[in-house]
């Protein structure tokens, strides 16, 4: 079993067909355990029960960045190694990444509501995630704008890599912009010193969500491969002359 074997879409399909049920099962188990542990976790002395949003928010926020990393690797695969599955992986990851980012934003603003008294605060972290969300949407728009996937792939790969280089710069600028305008009155979410009672459910949830991503990503890649097969079959049918 090497990377070369995986490069063959047919082999990829048959392999993932065997792996996916197990992955889905493991994901469900971990998320159930994580949710149970989160529900059992004590309330925070300051934030009360709202702290439990953290168990959903933090994994989503972590995945929102992780998925971009996966897409950057896939973009390298497209541009440098011309791996046949790389642009499939990149295309399939974008909507999932956008969904995780969206959930991070929603849970973040729900968490912020009791803290700030408003659903949205131009907090440095939330703002950075919002920009990340916009970049995901732009990438999806790019994929959708071009009908031929192999042509869209290179453009999307370049944009993904530029985004990967730009993200730290954006993060830094937003932090600077935010501190310039806002004295440190905003609640720092999470914080470095986390009690064990919180840490373990958070880790379980983080692993559960990561597995969820892998499951969804493999399933989406299968869909994309099948969609491309349908497309080439249709093109073959179009070029067939009627008898």
């Amino acid at each position: 079993m090497t990377l070369i074997d995986l490069a063959n879409p047919t082999r990829f399909l048959s392999l993932t067909a065997r792996v996916l049920p197990w992955l889905a099962g493991a994901t469900t188990m971990l998320l159930l355990v994580g949710l149970y542990q989160s529900a059992m976790a004590p309330d925070d002395y300051q934030q009360g029960a709202t702290v439990k949003i953290m168990f959903v928010h933090v994994p989503n926020a972590w995945l929102s960045m992780f998925v971009w990393g996966v897409m950057s690797l896939a973009a390298l695969g497209t541009l440098v190694w011309r791996h046949p599955l790389a642009d499939v992986a990149a295309k399939a990851a974008a909507p999932i990444g956008a969904a995780f980012t969206f959930l991070a934003l929603v849970t973040g603003s729900l968490w912020g509501r009791p803290m700030w008294g408003t659903y949205w605060e131009w907090d440095a972290r939330l703002t950075s995630v919002l920009i990340l969300f916009l970049m995901y949407l732009g990438l999806i728009a790019l994929w959708r704008a071009v009908e031929d996937p192999s042509r869209a792939a290179r453009a999307a790969a370049i944009l993904t890599l530029v985004g990967a280089i730009n993200l730290p710069i954006i993060k830094f600028s937003v932090d600077w912009w935010n501190t310039l305008h806002q004295p440190a009155s905003v609640l720092r979410m999470g914080g470095p010193s986390l009690d064990r009672a919180f840490l373990i459910p958070l880790l379980v949830m983080a692993i559960g969500f990561s597995l969820l991503f892998v499951t969804l990503h493999l399933a989406a890649m299968r869909n994309e491969i099948l969609r491309r097969r349908v497309r080439s079959l249709q093109m073959m049918q179009a070029s067939r002359q009627a008898a």
Binding site: E147, Q234, Q237, A238, A242
Partner: peptide, 21 residues
């Protein structure tokens, strides 16, 4: 469509057609 021998392509996107089609 049958009269111009495109009956087999009815439901396909027009993008897939050749210049002659």
């Amino acid at each position: 469509l049958a009269a111009v021998r495109l009956g087999h392509a009815t439901h396909l996107p027009a993008a897939y057609l050749s210049a002659g089609q």
